[in-house]
Design a protein around this nucleic acid. Structure first.
Length: 411
RNA sequence: GCGUCGGUGGUAGAGUGGUCAAUUACAACAGACUGUAAAUCUGUCGCCCAUUGGGCUACGCAGGUUCGAAUCCUGCCCGGCGCACCA
């Protein structure tokens, strides 16, 4: 197929010809910006950053869009910093209900940082970026200095007017703690710090971060007189449900193959609803606009072909797990869903021959739940198509299908 | 610190001594229909054993009253609100 490699920009290859602003617009990555987009993206090369909560050692699909936007900046010669919120992560953004945050210990943070760095390298097809942790400077702050040097630049009146804060103030049950209220100051301080240490003049983020990003740029202007910018991209939402995107079967879809096996990852994208396919092709893959046009024409012509989903799943899997894995799971999906012989790869879980009962452990569900699934006719042999009717059924040398798209190979 | 209201399953939110493993909605899962889609309809949705059925653990935590407690009492922890204190 080779599409993946064609869209790659290898070190030494010539830079993309389109202006960055054009690419970003075309892809739907642009939401709000503090100056004209051209001024931000097409002028002199900048240093820019984007923050990620290092709450796990892997990114999930929600991060994909952000990473691909960063990749575009990298390809256009800008310098990119990925900032892990080791310090701010301890506090929590006021938006949404947050449990008492657990302090992440140093070892864990280092592990998470390493994991995220590896994934970013892959997604960027480059290791030419930096990764930082804001705990390094937030941890050094002295209360008095901070209040005097940073706090005085913030108007409480303005902070109270923010939606995320207002919501909590009006909510009698929940309220907002002083700590969380200060979150915005810390995030602003990050920007200021990077501005001073790295001449970082642009912060990128999803639209829900807009307020925090702008207040960082404001802080920089007030404190140093310097000019810094903010650029947000739209949060991905599921068009038919209006919900935030990125969850499946109750849990996040991870980029780490240990957390979400490539097969499952591929399936997640195959199952994307028609209404969202084109948007995801634009935002989550590197296919050119023209190629996407061709794919979508086929899709619209014959929706049942799922041409869009198939392409989407393949491209993203290739991006995250490599072309070889993508080919593998593509082939495998085809076999499993069109009914074929037992699959021989290690991309789906395997269990030894025995009774069906063991499947509960593999699927991480209770025996009761497995029993229910069997009663509901959700468990069948992928090779013969016959449904199982007892949890004590003997199985061997087969592939079991549970529900719509979970499979277990039996030796 | 005083007073007051509250802490229920993934979420919201009922229930105020037995008929409560806990109404309902949303989410989730499954089946039917389809296109491995959406919408719709149906079912499931604490854990364990099971054919009907049975057992166990649960309503912030720890005790207590009672034949019996998510429900009453005491203490503790956490949150909201009001007042006081401080400024």
């Amino acid at each position: 197929m080779g599409l993946f490699s064609r869209t790659r920009v290898r070190p030494g290859e010539s830079a993309p010809t389109d202006k960055l602003s054009h690419t970003l617009r075309e892809r739907g990555y642009v939401y709000q910006h503090t100056a004209t987009l051209e001024e931000i993206t097409d002028g002199p090369k900048r240093t820019l950053y984007l923050g990620i909560d290092p709450t796990a050692d892997s990114m999930h699909v929600g991060h994909l869009q952000a990473m691909l936007v960063l990749r575009r900046f990298l390809e256009h010669g800008h310098r990119v910093i990925v900032l892990l919120g080791g310090g701010t992560g301890m506090i929590g953004d006021p938006s949404g209900k947050s449990e008492e945050r657990v302090l992440l210990d140093a070892g864990m943070l280092a592990r998470n940082a390493a994991g995220i760095k590896r994934q970013a390298e892959r997604l960027f097809n480059s290791d030419n970026f930096e990764i930082r942790n804001n705990l390094d400077w937030l941890g050094q702050l002295k209360v008095i200095d901070f209040l005097r040097d940073i706090g005085k630049h913030f108007s409480v009146n303005a902070m109270m007017a923010r939606d995320s804060v207002k919501e909590r103030l009006e909510n009698r049950e929940q309220g907002i703690s002083y700590t969380e209220f200060s979150y915005m100051l810390l995030q602003s301080y990050d920007f200021l710090h990077l501005f001073e240490s790295d001449r970082c003049t642009l912060q990128l983020g999803a639209s829900d971060q807009w307020g925090n990003m702008v207040s960082g740029a404001d802080l920089i202007r007030r404190k140093t007189g310097g000019e810094a910018y903010a650029l947000s991209f739209p949060l991905l939402i599921n068009k038919s449900t209006g919900k935030k995107f990125g969850k499946s079967e109750g849990g996040a879809v991870w980029l780490d193959p240990k957390k979400t096996p490539p097969f499952q990852f591929y399936q997640f994208w195959i199952n994307v609803e028609d209404a969202n396919v084109e948007e995801y092709l634009l935002k989550m893959t590197l296919l050119s606009k023209e190629e996407i046009g061709v794919v979508m024409a086929e899709q619209n012509n014959n929706p049942a072909s799922r041409a869009g989903q198939k392409r989407l799943a393949y491209e993203i899997t290739a991006l995250v797990h490599g072309v070889r894995k993508a080919e593998e799971v593509k082939q495998e999906s085809k076999e499993l869903f069109t009914g074929g012989s037992p699959v021989q790869t290690d991309n789906i879980p395997t269990m030894p021959a025995g009774t069906l009962r063991q499947a509960a452990g593999i699927l991480e569900i209770s025996i009761s739940e497995l029993r229910r699934l069997i009663e509901q006719g959700a468990v069948s042999s992928a090779t013969s198509g016959n449904k199982f009717d007892s949890i004590d059924a003997d199985v061997s040398n087969d592939t079991i299908k549970i529900g719509k798209n979970r499979f277990i190979r039996v030796e």
